[in-house]
Each structure stands twice: as C-alpha cells, then as structure tokens.
Write a protein that binds this DNA or RNA. Structure first.
Lengths: 220, 220
DNA sequence: CTATCATTCAAACTATCGCTTGAATGACCT
DNA sequence: AGGTCATTCAAGCGATAGTTTGAATGATAG
C-alpha cells in the first residue's frame, strides 16, 4: 500500500522542518554557517556533550542539511547548501513578525531602548570603500581569525568595555557577529549606544557577507 | 534560573519550525493559503478527522502561524502573515536541492520524463495581456470559484481527459494549482504533454499570484 | 600490530507527538 | 430557556525525540 506522491512530498518537507525544530540543531547550523567544523569543536561551541552533538548532527544529515567528510581521525561537517541560511533567516523573519515573545527578547537585548535599523551589507561595503566607518567583529577570536570583514576590529563583549575610550565619539560604528541568530551584535550596539556612540548593527553576519561574494580577510 | 536570551530566541525559532514539521500541518497551511477556512472545511480538504484537525490548528496557532475568529458557531482560521508562504517555499527549495527522494517523487509525477521549466508569473501576466496563452486551473471547482486567474479554464485531472480533444495542438498551455506544494499542475502538465500538447507549469500557484497583487477573477 | 583518539552506536529514561474516542463548551435558533 | 451544531477539551495509546552513560568502531601513529 503506497502513499500518495503528495503525502510523500509533504513528509520530505516536514523532515527538513523537523531538523530545524530543536534549538540545539539551529545552534549547530549557525556554527556551521561560519565554516566547516569537527564534532568536538561544534560540541564545545554549542555546549553540547560530544555524544549528543553527534546525534544531532546525524539528524541534520538525515535531512541532508549537512554533509561530512573524514579528515584523519576527525569527521568534518559542513552545510550542504547555502540556501539553508536563507531558510533559517525566513524562520527568524516569520518568528519575529508573529511571536510577541521574540520582540520582547530582542528589546531586552537592547536594554529596553529602541534599536536603530540595521545597516545593509551593500551600504557597509560602500562606506568601507570610502573609509568612513569603523567595523567591529563581536565574535570570539578564533572565529575572527578564520575570516572577517577587511579592516574590522575584533572584540568580545567583555573586551569591548576596555575599548570604549579609544572609540571616537562622532565616528560611525557598525557591529556584526555570526549572523541573524547571533545576539552579540545586538548587545554590543546597545553597550556602545549607552556610551553615546553612534553604533548600528550589520544586517546578517559574516556568512551572509561571504555568501554575497564580498571580500574576506584572514589572519596569518 | 533564567535561560540566556540566545537560547530563548532559538527556542522560539524552533517552535515555528516544529509547527511546520508535520505533513498534516503543511497541508493545512497550504489550504489556508487559498483563503480563510472553517475547521470542518479544512478537515475535509486535508482528510483529517475534525478533532485531529482542530488540534493541529491549535499547534499552528501556538506558533502564531494562524489566527482565528468566530463567525456564528464556526471558527474561521487564516494565515497570520503571507511571509509564511515564503518560508514554506524555502522549505521546499531546500528539500528539493538536498533530498534525492524529492527529486525522485517529482520525476514520478511527470511520468519519468523531463518536465520543462515552469513559467514565471510575470511571464504569464505578459502573455495573458497579449492573449497568446491558455491558462488551466487544475483545482477542485469550489476553490476555482473562490478566485482564479482571469480567463483560466477549470478542470480537475479527471475532467482534463475529456477536455483533451478540444485543446489546439499548437497553443501554449499553462497549468497552475494551489501552490508549490500542490501536485495537480505537475500531473496535468505530464498528461497534456503525453498527448503532444505544449504545456508548462506556472511557478507557484494562486496564493503567490494573489500575493503579488495580480488580478483575480471570481465566480458569481 | 597495537595503542590511541575522535566519533558513533546502543541502551535506558523521561517527555512529547500524533491520532482516536467520547465528553464538554459555547454560540446560535426557535 | 432548551435544543442544536461546530469546535474544543481530556484521556489514553503507541511511537518518537532528547539526553545521559558507557561501550564499540575505525583511522592514525608508533
């Protein structure tokens, strides 16, 4: 007794949605958007145990959202398709539009104040070309090292506090982090604005920037 | 003990994904994309029992993908936001790209033959203006009655067989149905092409057409 | 060939899902 | 008010998900 093609299709689509239906897996995908990673690195970044991380990765693989290859003893995972980022971003857009709770959390991140509109990537590229902007990469140093927007300063939220006095009051600052799911840039912008600085968030994060074929700088 | 804002956000996004993770709910959303509906109508269209349908609708409501209002004794559901259609379409795109099984099912629908590229909605609009195309609405008559592309003929797959002789061999035919998840248009195009007719699918379906602000015809 | 190390598997537990059945709610109609 | 009808709730079932623990796999290094 075979099921109808229609149901079969819906089941496949549902399979992909199910893969996105656990916070742990969204977190893994966000990490993988930065670049390929081994299981151990992913487990550490996401705070999962190794075994649990491995199982989540295998669910992502069942939905074909990630693929893996062996490198020595390690298994390296990566996103199958960059379109997955678009899908995850749509997920965020729909959640933000519909769920009041998301609005509330985001407002909390900005310290209750109204956050300014984010800067588009095209805008930032233009301003970078004229050198009229300071770019801030608010990710951990190891992720910065793997690749960042050319000219960007790196500072975690903690380091940012010490850095505040060195930032000119008038200059425009644009902060970015891992991508639309990442809260670092929100928090950094809130901190900077509390100190009277002219800071805004970049729309998206490094994966989106890279995906558009824009320039990336590396350390070493 | 409060969880981090980051985890809180991911949980909200995961909640939306979970809402999309059951075939029954995808089917309900596809129906609701056609227009608002009561519980009974939705249950019948999707083949669910009333109670089961009601429960799925409440899960969709928890994720804020649908809202409801009372109309007499009936409760009418509708999509909260048209962006949900984009999200569902991205789900399909990612599934089609990554899952070989989806490819196989779609190929099966086309009778194993290569299906031609779908016609874009802008293209169809242009051809409609010059009258150089026959448009076929392959949905049940009641959905056609609620709204369809101006000038479109209505025929279910069964009725299509009888209609074949009346279609000119040279004319271009464009078939559409409920949207990207709907298989009727695929099947109709396959049937028409087996009879040597020049048929293609419209990209998307009526909801997408309506969403772009294009003209809709109604019966009565 | 053996030891080592990263990853995966297996088993166990609790929690939740999807579906069914039958009762409860709540608004309309006479 | 009482009856009627659409919808929702509640309870129960088997199946599956998420997590932890500990053992098994499989490739590399000596």
């Amino acid at each position: 007794m075979s099921i109808s093609p229609k149901t079969a299709l819906l089941e496949e689509y549902a399979l992909v949605a199910r893969a996105l239906s656990a916070p742990a897996r969204l977190s893994l995908l966000e990490q993988l958007a930065q670049g390929e990673r081994g299981v151990e690195a992913l487990a550490e970044k996401t705070g999962l145990t190794i075994a649990n991380c491995s199982q989540h990765l295998q669910q992502l693989r069942r939905a074909a959202l990630v693929t893996s290859r062996r490198d020595g003893k390690a298994v390296i995972y990566r996103l199958t398709d960059a379109k997955t980022l678009t899908l995850m971003d749509m997920l965020r857009v729909v959640a933000e539009r519909n769920l009041a709770k998301v609005e509330r959390i985001l407002r909390g991140l900005s310290g209750g104040e109204e956050a300014p509109e984010p800067v588009s990537r095209a805008d930032l590229a233009a301003r970078l070309a004229e050198g009229s902007v300071t770019v801030l990469d608010v990710r951990p140093a190891d992720e910065y090292a793997t690749g960042h927007i050319p000219g960007a300063l790196n500072a975690t939220l903690a380091e940012l506090q010490q850095m505040l006095p060195t930032l000119a009051a008038g200059a425009e600052i644009v902060a970015y982090c891992r991508g639309p799911y990442c809260v670092y840039a929100h928090q950094a912008v809130a901190a900077l604005r509390r100190h009277g600085l002219n800071a805004r968030r970049l729309e998206g994060g490094l994966p989106e920037w890279r995906e558009e074929g824009r320039q990336i700088a590396r350390i070493g």
